[in-house]
């Protein structure tokens, strides 16, 4: 913790960065994102095992970017989001100062995207065992059971779009949901509108979702949305040998044709 405070103080003092995106104490036992702009605010930083949120989404927020040069405390998920964002030309190497927070509480500086990539190949990028179990359960269901399961979940949805707002990959300037010529997705939060929205979102995240779980964590109605996109991770991996958020110059599996792509799923 002291290392973190010392490091961020120095970064701000020598103007390497203008703001550092990290974790602070929130309401009661909650952890929240804080933006540290000068060394007097550095003491507000905390780092505990509860600091699991993926902060990478803020790298794209207009009002955050306007502050100046950004520094971020990135956990594994955030690093992967950053690689995925870089591959989609949303952030550039050298633009952001990256301090990595490892699960054991140590902090490492990553000088460039290359070192992030080198680190990422050493870690387990899979989903948690709990999530694996839930997905296994879903996959064991008949199509009809699964349909009922999701309809029951989506029934609770109020279309607050917190899931979309929380997802670092949902950065589109005009989301398909918001396009009205033509109106692809019914705006209403009724059965059809909710279903179409969630299917569309899952499809748009296929091969891009870095399984950080922000969408499900954000949902006030406790809908396990992450399971939808997580279910697509395995097929993309086996079909295209692609994992999201591993390389800054990756080409997107679903928009690139490679001669050796498997085609057995077409027929």
């Amino acid at each position: 913790m002291n290392d973190l405070i010392k490091k961020v103080t120095q970064l701000l003092d020598d103007k390497t960065i203008n703001v550092f995106i990290g974790y602070g104490q929130g309401t009661a036992s909650r952890i929240r994102t804080i933006f540290v702009k000068n060394s007097s605010q550095v003491e507000n930083l905390v780092y505990t095992s509860d600091c699991t949120a993926n902060l990478a989404g803020y790298l794209l927020k207009h009002e955050v970017k306007k502050i100046g040069k950004l520094g971020i405390l990135a956990n594994d998920s955030a690093l992967r989001s950053m690689m995925q964002l870089a591959s989609e030309f949303q952030i550039k190497d050298g633009e952001v100062y990256v301090l990595h927070a490892a699960k054991d509480g140590s902090f490492t500086e990553f000088a460039d995207f290359q070192s992030i990539e080198a680190y990422l190949v050493t870690i387990d990028t899979g989903i948690t065992s709990d999530e694996q179990e839930r997905i296994a359960k879903l996959e064991a269901m008949t199509v009809k059971e699964r349909w009922i399961f999701w309809n029951k979940e989506f029934e609770k949805c109020i279309k607050c779009y917190a899931c979309r707002a929380a997802c670092p990959m949902c950065y589109c300037h005009r989301c398909t949901t918001d396009v009205n010529q033509p109106q692809w997705i019914p705006v209403a939060s009724h059965e059809q509108g909710n279903l179409d929205y969630h299917l569309m979102r899952a499809m748009h995240l296929a091969g891009r979702c870095v399984n950080c779980g922000e969408c499900a964590n954000a949902c006030p109605m406790d809908i396990p949305l992450n399971l939808l996109t997580y279910q697509l991770i395995a097929p993309i991996r086996t079909t295209f040998d692609a994992t999201a958020g591993m390389k800054a110059d990756a080409v997107y599996a679903l928009s690139t044709f490679k001669p050796d792509d498997k085609e057995n799923f077409i027929i």
Partner: peptide, 9 residues
Amino acid sequence: SLRCIGCGA
């Protein structure tokens, strides 16, 4: 509002 992500929750 710097951390507000602009949802409808």
